[in-house]
Write a protein that binds this DNA or RNA. Structure first.
Lengths: 236, 236
DNA sequence: ATATAAACCAAAAAGCAATTGGTCGTTTAC
DNA sequence: GTAAACGACCAATTGCTTTTTGGTTTATAT
């Protein structure tokens, strides 16, 4: 009825019409444009033709669509670059250790500012349990839980998420054969005193001290790891 | 006040009763045990007393609980927070800002140590382009790229991945209506000088200075954001 | 005093209806 | 005759409500 003269390719005209609409219309913050059914009615074209025009713009990369979600301007948001497996593949133990040295002291510093008494007593529990551990596996469990409790104490779910990601990559990265010995942790294990120092600093709201203690602890872990690596290399 | 009294008599019996129940009962695959209300009825004890017993077992690390989920045997599954959308849903602009303040200065510090001349000249390019930006969208593009170039300069793919995660969450979080104004960035925009200071410090291998400059920059951004929020609130 | 029962709370889950891009079949128009 | 238009349907997704669940508080009773 309306376009009684199909002189040119009709789709092309609808594309320009759609471009004009997008240029002059205020889109919401997320760049979402109206659903196809509404838009086709607003533009006075059929949904079929509108979809052809949208196909063109999508091929040009100017918008992206998804069933149930809608149609959005801009480029499709890259989903989950935080793929643990991919990260672990690209990374290596040395990088993980350096990343921990960058991230965890600052998380500890923040935790010293925000930790609740409940969080601190949970840290103390981890200290006690890790000392009572009969196997290295148990010890590692409490050690991991201590570090995560510190991250939780920041009361920042995003920081906690980043910590978890870091932790997941740490476990996923191949640490070669340098694994824990089957003997039980000795009471002179370096981490005990270092963990105590960290929690003490947090309890005293000593932000600088907490960060320094965590950094010192991780540096010790790094050194021990290198020594193990050396020994393993010499055994070959 | 906490555990001055061992109070072995009442709770201890329920703990053993609960242990016996857990030993003889077939739990589902996920290790979930009945809700407290059912379990207390089944064991013939009050919920208060059952909860005391559950507290003991939880402190021992034999089970974990979560509101809305339930109570489960074993150790709490370290929920892999790699999902950007889930993180964004749990987080908020204030958390994102705080997380940036915790993470990015240290990344900048590390970058000051490892940045190559090529990386530094790319940072300089971002500075120039951001000054030439005609729209806020363009400016944001170069600003984002500058920050990412700094993260790349750490030459640590894991740190870069964590930065990307942080950045993705930042974009995914709903910033409400406080969006960029449609005017072009003024030459007196605070970020210009601050960005310069960051890159200068990196170029001079001044790790402490680079971290401080980044922290100052982010604090300015935070302040400006709060001002915007205030203004938006007053307009309502 | 202490334990109990009940009520309430917020987080999480489960269920349900509405929305939305994608697809197919039939009808309509020129 | 051919292509557009229309309608119906589908599955993914969202938004909302209701239910469940651990955690907390309050009043009551023993």
């Amino acid at each position: 009825m309306l376009n009684s003269h199909p002189d040119t390719h009709p789709a092309q005209g609808i594309v320009t019409q759609l471009r004009a609409y997008l240029a002059q219309t205020d889109l919401p913050d997320d760049g979402r444009l109206p659903p196809e059914r509404e838009l086709s009615a607003a533009l006075g074209v059929s949904r079929t033709e509108l979809r052809k025009a949208l196909d063109v713009l999508e091929a040009e990369g100017q918008l992206w669509r998804h069933v149930g979600k809608g149609t959005f301007m801009g480029s499709r948001p890259l989903d989950t670059f935080a793929d643990i497996a991919a990260l672990a593949r690209r990374s290596n133990p040395a990088e993980v250790m350096r990343a921990r040295l960058v991230i965890e002291p600052e998380i500890t510093r923040a935790a010293a500012f925000t930790a609740t008494p409940a969080a601190i007593s949970e840290m103390r529990l981890c200290l006690t349990r890790s000392r009572q551990a009969e196997t290295w596996r148990q010890y590692e469990g409490w050690d991991t839980r201590l570090h995560r409790t510190i991250a939780e104490a920041t009361q920042n779910s995003l920081l906690l998420g980043l910590f978890d990601t870091l932790n997941a990559v740490r476990r996923a990265v191949t640490w070669g054969r340098l694994r824990t010995a089957p003997v039980r942790p000795l009471p002179t294990h370096h981490s005990f005193a270092e963990h105590d120092a960290i929690v003490d600093a947090i309890e005293h709201r000593d932000m600088a001290g907490a960060a320094a203690a965590m950094r010192a602890h991780l540096q010790t872990v790094e050194r021990k790891l290198l020594e193990k690596q050396m020994r393993a290399a010499n055994e070959d």
